[in-house]
Design a protein around this nucleic acid. Sequence first.
DNA 1: GACCGCTACTTGTCTAGACATCTACACCGC
DNA 2: GCGGTGTAGATGTCTAGACAAGTAGCGGTC
Lengths: 255, 255
Amino acid sequence: MTVAAPPRVAAPPPGAAPLSRDEGEALWHQIARVLRQEIAAGTPAPGARLPAEAALATRFGVNRHTLRRALEALAREGLLKIERGRGSFVAEDVLDYAIGARTRFSEWIRRHNKEPSGRILRLEECAAPVAVARGLGLRAGARAILLERLGLADGRPVSLTEHYFPARLRGLRAALAAAASITEALRAVGVDDYRRQLTRVSARLPDAAEAGLLRIPRTRPLLVAENVNVDRAGAVVEFGLARYPTPRVQIVFEP
Amino acid sequence: MTVAAPPRVAAPPPGAAPLSRDEGEALWHQIARVLRQEIAAGTPAPGARLPAEAALATRFGVNRHTLRRALEALAREGLLKIERGRGSFVAEDVLDYAIGARTRFSEWIRRHNKEPSGRILRLEECAAPVAVARGLGLRAGARAILLERLGLADGRPVSLTEHYFPARLRGLRAALAAAASITEALRAVGVDDYRRQLTRVSARLPDAAEAGLLRIPRTRPLLVAENVNVDRAGAVVEFGLARYPTPRVQIVFEP
DNA sequence: GACCGCTACTTGTCTAGACATCTACACCGC
DNA sequence: GCGGTGTAGATGTCTAGACAAGTAGCGGTC
């Protein structure tokens, strides 16, 4: 009397989606379909990490190679980004920041069909640092208003900006505290229109605070953009210093 | 004293391209590069079959899975077409036959940057079959001139055509034997211009002779096009019956 | 704090074998 | 000639194990 042969592979765990073996559709194809649906449903969310290949293989009750085949297919479709040594991540569409003369944060985010929001981190009067004073056309140490702000798209941080305004704009600090956007606050103090005069882009690694606020590891570079905004008369109304997390954000120059 | 451990895999045969193991580039990537070069150099030629995966794996001294990975990459690039149960074939660009009123064989081929040529298989006077007589507007059994021709592009067969002409065109048979093209022969007997009045397309499997001439297996369908050409006055000057091998040739309708 | 090395975890590659599935073709019987 | 059947050979899928190589974080050292 012989014992029944053990199944060739471990059965998938109870709650898992059932894969049909010995039917027409390949296992890796079925797995890709399941993952595609889950991603479309929002879990895991864009940017989130998937379980490791070994864990997913266990979940579906298949060999790691079979599972890899499914992940490769999804990566080719652009749904996943697989990073060696780190894991597989649900692709999040890159926010192209198209630098134009009149680009406003909320318009930028809305153009990507996301909901813009923001959090004021700091709002105070201070002495302008040297680089800022030069940008604003002031003497070093002159008084300036500083607004530090975290920009979010659909709740995910996409920018960390410092805005310096010359102190000559009376009432701006109160307006910034009350208004929903910088554009609106400037209008409240008489600056109807402004445009970007200059933008300079660089990159560096974030410090701990920046990494925490933007929710990125400290090894991911930031794009750092300095810009100068002027009013219709050409007077400087703002010096901005923006930090964007890569690769979530890319900057595009529009001539 | 121990014997040296045997190599994990068989060494590639003497004449084969050397692959560098334990260097930065993956084996499958090196193999893909070698095959890409060979295809670019023309051997194997477009349409030709590559050796089977097992044979190629032996040639490069790798496992079949490793070789498959290289083939898959090339297939994704469009350089190969892999067909289950048949083999891997160097992709050949499909000849789109754009049906226009004045499409001539040589122009068609030249538009694809290939060199047109042809071989006359038959040239004789015969009694027109019923279908042909109807196309030519003659009584069944009326005398007609038949030209059967194999058309080639860069030496590869792309069409097999029967051309029927009404016997009223005196001297055409001699002209066809002497001229390089039908257009030229017709001009020699006074038909300066002609245009396609009608084309009807169907498909069927080839018989043994057709398969042999077009160098395709008998299981590959032929595109069959009947067409009627008329001169400036509207009189029928030719009834054509063309057979094209799929998928080498596709027919495109131009409105 | 900065730097280094260690370690755990992750993805990438290669090998090996088994079986499924499809194609082409020869063969046979009618 | 026609159609079915068998067979060899091709690609497709899955499992299994091993090792390479990259990443991140921890802890020790200076």
